[in-house]
Design a protein around this nucleic acid. Structure first.
Length: 604
RNA sequence: GGGGGCGUAGCUCAAUUGGUUAGAGCGCUGCCCUGUCACGGCAGAGGUUACGGGUUCGAGCCCCGCCGCUCCCGCCA
């Protein structure tokens, strides 16, 4: 080994020992007659001292030229720092190593951006950080994220093992099942014109594993989706994939609550109270306007449909006549909202097809609003009471069909919370975690354009037993045995009890989803077949592992917890992928391009 | 597919809103400095203002195009 200790190890107890430290030059402070070189490795850093009386002129001058981030190995004697020179900021700050010899293992060029100063490095353009990811990952903050990720992955494996689960790897060369997200395709050289697809999730394999008698399966599974990206979406990502046999929903709730408890304890030393609260899809929409509520703050939606029935204010009255609802939120303290902020919220409402956004500002004891003059005294009284209106409030309305009205105010509620946060009027502690199970989702949604039902989760979700009779009479009423786990307004994962009877599954595919029988056979035939030979009742869940780690690391972007993430356009700036390929490779695959290869990458 | 934001020295940012030689801090290079840890002091180098056009007496700034990064909507069974 080129080291005897790591750089966060030496303490007064080591004084007098001769040690060798290896790592990167964190900083080189040349005082002329004395040089201090902080050497840093994964664990931390230690100060080394070069005294000219110990060195030839050449070697001493060489030490002075050691540039930041060069890799060195330094041997010397540990000693107490002189009185008054301890550095309380670092754990090794009571001692220093008197350098006796050193070896330059790799001299670094001048860096494209600083990695030693967290203040500056944090602000460096992400494009540059991604291009030089190996430098970016040296930053303690990024190194900490990687470490958290690894620790949590291990904690999950240990916990799942304790619970009797087997980790089983499933193929990443799968077949195309075009119902869901767009897939990445992999051409098959052996039979031109056929393709593998990279799996969007191991869903079908894990259900087959239940038929195979595995009973308790999990996997840290890599998944692929060829959709447009976001701060919390990458084309390849990792999910904690879980499936169990002979269970009900309660078993999954208990398992995941235990798992997350372990994860939070491991990563943050936080004790998460269980059981988690549960909220139905309908209640979530009614109170928060979204199916993944951030319940760390109030500002809940309040319904005024009854109060405005037959209202003189035509927009509300007519909406209710047409079967719609009137809802409102009270953004406490936001009466001073700027014209621009009101405009932003109005655009949000219009994005949902609303004509505008009605609001009331409560300022200087007055209700300032273009619409208040149409309100009756009873209506005003109802607003005052149910919204607990007081000076400085901003009341925002949505009048629309139920789902739309809820979703409009749901979006505006989150926007208002952001504005209030920046104004310091709303404070949410960083260590507050609000876990929620969202349950009783509708099994199906209706696609007006194509005039057919679609699965709101996926087609393997079992209906709530009591609702099965409605499958053929009133599909909209059928609830699925589906559940989402939500924390602080982020969807951490979701799952369901699955259908294990082939006839029910076939009904869903063919009668409700209207997939032609031959297509069902081609895509899912093997599953229906498998379910004929002893399929146990089963269910499972998948947690977004990257999102989970991002929450634990308190970062909004999952790129910060993935070692080598892609950009929003799906490229890797470090390796410059994707790239063109050589003509021979295409010939082997019997693929002919209809576009000219782009200039970048390997010349064609 | 659609909408918004950004792009000036190696890095982070300025540039009196269209005005003459594009600045600062850090970094870098050289010199000085024996207790620093954001070391300090002095001096210096470093720019096709992403790129391509246009308007103008004059463009970092205005217009058009284009490339890259980013956020959001659509999309993500």
């Amino acid at each position: 080994m080129k080291r005897t200790h790591h750089c966060n190890e030496l303490r007064p107890a080591h004084i007098g020992q001769t040690v060798t430290l290896s790592g990167w030059v964190h900083s080189n402070r040349d005082l002329g007659g004395l040089i201090f070189i902080d050497i840093r490795d994964r664990e931390g850093r230690t100060q080394t001292v070069f005294d000219p009386s110990d060195w030839t002129k050449e070697l001493f001058e060489q030490a002075a030229t050691l540039r930041s981030e060069s890799v060195v190995s330094i041997t010397g004697k540990v000693r107490q720092r002189p009185a008054g020179t301890n550095n309380a900021k670092i754990p090794t700050g009571e001692v220093e190593v008197m350098a006796q010899s050193f070896e330059v293992l790799n001299m670094a060029e001048v860096l494209p951006f600083p990695v030693d100063d967290p203040e500056v490095a944090n602000k460096v353009n992400e494009e540059l950080r991604l291009q030089y990811r190996y430098l970016d990952l040296r930053r303690p903050e990024m190194a900490r994220n990687l470490r958290t990720r690894s620790k949590v992955a291990t904690a999950i494996r240990v916990f799942m093992d304790e619970q009797g689960f087997l980790e089983v790897e499933t193929p990443t060369l799968f077949k195309s099942t075009p119902e869901g997200a767009r897939e990445f395709l992999v051409p098959n050289r052996r039979e031109p014109g056929t393709f593998y697809a990279l799996p969007q999730s191991p869903q079908q394999f894990k259900q087959i594993l239940m038929v195979a008698g595995v009973e308790k399966y999990f996997q840290l599974a890599r998944c692929y989706r060829d959709e447009d990206l976001r701060a919390d979406r990458q084309p390849e990502f990792t999910q904690v994939d879980i499936e169990m046999s002979f269970i009900e929903r309660e078993d999954i709730y208990a398992l995941i609550e235990g798992l997350l408890q372990r994860v939070w304890k491991t990563a943050l030393n936080v004790d998460v109270p269980t059981p988690f609260k549960r909220i139905s899809f309908e209640e979530a929409l009614n109170r928060y306007g979204i199916d993944k509520p951030d319940a760390r703050f109030g500002m809940e939606l309040v319904d005024f449909t009854e109060e405005f029935k037959g209202s003189k204010f035509g927009v509300f009255g007519k909406c209710i006549e047409g079967g719609g609802v009137v809802k409102a939120i009270n953004a406490r303290g936001l009466a001073g909202a700027t014209q621009g902020q009101i405009e932003t919220m109005t655009e949000t409402a219009k994005g949902f097809g609303a004509k505008g956004l009605a609001y009331i500002k409560i300022e200087n004891g007055e209700w300032k609003s273009p619409i208040v003059k149409f309100f009756s005294d009873a209506e005003k009284a109802a607003l005052t009471t149910k919204l607990q209106i007081q000076e400085g409030d901003l009341i925002l309305f949505a009048a629309d069909q139920w789902l739309n009205a809820c979703e409009i105010l749901g979006k505006i509620r989150l926007y208002c919370a952001d504005v209030l946060k920046t104004q310091g009027k709303l404070t949410i502690p960083a260590d507050q975690f609000n876990f929620l199970w969202v349950i009783e989702f509708p099994l199906l949604g209706f696609d007006r354009e194509n005039n057919r039902w679609y699965s709101s989760h996926h087609p393997f979700t079992a209906p709530v037993t009591d609702d099965i009779p409605f499958l053929k009479t009133d599909p909209k009423k059928v609830r699925g045995q589906h559940y989402d786990i939500v924390v602080n307004g982020v969807e951490l994962g979701g799952g369901s009890i699955r259908i294990h009877q082939p006839d029910v599954q076939k009904t869903i595919f063919e009668e409700l989803l209207q997939i032609p029988p031959d297509m069902v056979q081609a895509r899912f035939g093997y599953m229906l077949e498998a379910f004929k030979y002893g399929a146990p009742p089963h269910g499972g869940i998948a947690l977004g592992f990257d999102r989970l780690i991002a929450i634990l690391c308190n970062t909004p972007s999952i790129r910060d917890v993935i070692a080598f993430p892609k950009t929003a356009k799906g490229t890797c700036l470090m390796t410059d992928s994707p790239s063109t390929v050589e003509p021979k490779q295409l010939r082997d695959l019997h693929i002919e391009l209809k576009v000219k290869p782009v200039a970048s990458g390997i010349p064609a």
